[in-house]
Simulated scan of single mutants.
Amino acid sequence: MKTFHCNRCSHLVFFENVLCERCEALLGYVPELREISAFEDAGEGRWRSLHPEADGALYRQCHNYSVENVCNWMIPADSEDTLCQSCQLTHTIPNLGEPDNRLYWYRLEVAKRRLLYTLAEFGLDIESRQEDPEHGLAFEFLEDGGDGSRVMTGHDNGLITLNIAEADDAHREKVRTAMGEPYRTLLGHFRHEIGHYYFSQLVENNPRWLEPFRKLFGDERADYGEALDAYYRDGAPADWQASYISAYATMHPWEDWAETWAHYMLIVDVLDTSTSYGVALLPDDPSEPTLTDRTPVEDASFDNLMKRWYPLTYALNSLNRSLGMADGYPFTLAVPVVDKLRFVHRVIADAGNKSSTSQSSKSPAKEAASKQAT
């Protein structure tokens, strides 16, 4: 993710911020610009963007921003929508009458918005349930029932369900330890489940990708229920790290794809952030990992991404150990895993290119600013 600044005082701000800590300007995310903007009050619930690319456009706060305090996205002032593009995708929210559920809802929405930001940077299209009632993307945030019924996090024809217990740090850590997982995050769940969604969107019915997919990941027509039972009965093969990014990826080709997709998103997001911050590694000993390449990730080849990834994770893990924490990147990328990541990169690049050629490369706000400038 790129760095953001307050347009009124140039103070560094974060993607989740709602207020500039220096000048107290209202902040909000403008999806059309893919930018955090500072705003000034224009009266009657309207806010004027101070971002130079917005050309003084007026916006309103998403209802879940102004009323529920779980969002920070903005809506064009003349729009009939009350919810932003992100919140419209959430079809079921937690029961807010229960203690802590508002906090969990907030954490879920924060992770979802980060997911949507990266998908937009990839140039990937999203069809909502309103646009495609049968297969459009939607989210449900549910909790286990008092009768002992369990909510399973998963994906079904575009509907992504997340158990809100995953937003409880203590619960998630307990499950991570019990499952023997080195890495389990809320954002990771979103990345994994959206991988299932894009398998159906980009690979499942595409002859160009389906056969290459089967050569790398296996035949997805294998019975999923049997594979699931076998995994939880027998566990992953002892040598799984030689071919898979995680133990869970060994369960079925669908899960291998989703785990690999999620990992690719992690790599690109971290590299994008480090590049935006100008992170470089310049050791005194030239034999140690070095990183000076600042090629924007959207312009980088897959080989370029991988070349930069090793030194960055080496530094990341070293910093974590200095903090007395576990490695921030507890993974090993075997050659077959890299091949799978390369395949994901190709699928995303192809889909992103098609999306960019089927619509204007500039958002309406950017188009208006460009016309005025000329």
Results as ranks from 00 to 15, higher is better:
L27R: 04
S301T: 12
L89T: 10
K174Y: 12
P76Y: 08
D169H: 09
A77T: 05
E35D: 07
Y277F: 12
F213D: 02
R346Q: 14
V270L: 10
E204A: 13
L108S: 12
A300L: 06
T250H: 04
E24T: 10
P52N: 02
A111R: 00
V270M: 14
R208K: 13
A111P: 07
V151H: 05
D339E: 15
T177Q: 14
C62M: 09
C6N: 05
H5F: 12
E53A: 09
S322K: 01
T290M: 14
E193G: 00
H345Q: 02
S276Q: 10
C9R: 03
R8N: 13
Y198W: 08
Y248M: 02
Y29N: 04
S358N: 06
A334N: 09
P296Y: 02
V338A: 04
H51W: 03
M152S: 06
V175E: 15
G235W: 03
G235E: 04
E21H: 10
N205R: 11
V30Y: 10
T273S: 10
M265T: 09
R60S: 01
E288Q: 15
E255K: 00
V70L: 11
K112P: 15
W261T: 05
L271Q: 15
L50Y: 07
Y310K: 05
G158D: 14
I75D: 13
K215V: 07
G43I: 01
G123N: 12
Y329L: 04
G218A: 06
S274K: 09
Y59A: 01
V175T: 03
L159M: 11
A369M: 01
T3S: 10
